[in-house]
């Protein structure tokens, strides 16, 4: 499903985020990306929904070459990928329900269907009481959950999460992990960058460790592997 071939990403300021990375993730897999901050995990995720272009190498999703993809095709790529952003990226002037519904609005769905499905997704993350609240009225954890709901509302083929439990207490973190686990069981590929050692160790999923822009380790059913 995802194929990175000799990918390097060097930012204009000279920072080398990724160096000659090759990685293959199959359909239906659950993959943890671990490694120190600034190792290149976020960059790898950004390459996949085409917020960034690689400096060298090939990135492909479902056989489509993302490097050569035309600008007007990018929205269609992003509709197949749900992203849980580290900084949530919620629309400040829209309510919780509208934020989640926006991922369906862009598909051109009827308003009624948009609302029903948005409410269902918010039920899954346990936020049915805040449908009409605005993002600034929510706590960090609640905003995080709105972002999760928006990422899963349109049943994406790939779900990517950048530190989705970073702002949550342990209980809520596990709720989110259960959610991701269930979504994965239904066939959605999940890629998650995280620092949460206990979660990685307990889930026993594939672990890809990135250090200084290179893949340091790639274990089936691995552990976090770093001492905190």
């Amino acid at each position: 499903m995802i194929q990175l071939t000799n990918v390097s990403k060097i930012y204009p300021n000279g920072a080398k985020a990724l160096v000659d990375v090759s990685l293959r993730i199959g359909k239906g897999e659950f993959v943890f990306l671990v490694g120190p901050s600034g190792a290149g995990k976020s960059t790898l995720i950004r390459l996949l929904y085409r917020e960034e272009h690689p400096s060298r190498g090939l990135v492909s999703f479902n056989g489509q070459n993302l490097v050569r993809m035309k600008e007007r095709e990018v929205p269609f790529l992003r509709r197949k990928i749900g992203v849980i952003f580290q900084d949530f990226k919620l629309l400040p002037r829209k309510t919780v329900r509208e934020n989640v519904g926006f991922a369906l609005e862009v598909l051109g769905l009827q308003r009624h269907e948009v609302e029903v499905r948005a409410e269902k997704a918010l039920e899954l993350v346990g936020l049915t009481k805040k449908l009409k609240a605005f993002p600034h009225e929510l706590s960090g954890g609640e905003q995080q959950r709105v972002c999760v709901a928006r990422a899963i509302v349109n049943d994406p083929a790939l779900l990517m999460a950048d530190e989705p439990t970073g702002n949550l207490d342990p209980d809520t973190s596990w709720e989110i992990m259960d959610l991701l686990h269930n979504i994965n069981k239904k066939g959605t590929t999940v890629v998650m960058a995280t620092h949460a050692k206990d979660i990685v160790d307990q889930m026993k999923k594939r672990v890809v460790a990135i250090e200084q822009g290179r893949i340091a380790r790639d274990d089936e059913k691995g552990g976090y592997g770093y001492e905190l």
């Binding site: 929205p75 992003r78 509709r79 990226k89 991922a103 862009v106 598909l107």
Partner: peptide, 10 residues
């Protein structure tokens, strides 16, 4: 920017 990242066309 957010709208574009969620898949909105121009």
């Amino acid at each position: 920017q957010i709208m574009k990242l969620v898949g909105a066309s121009n």
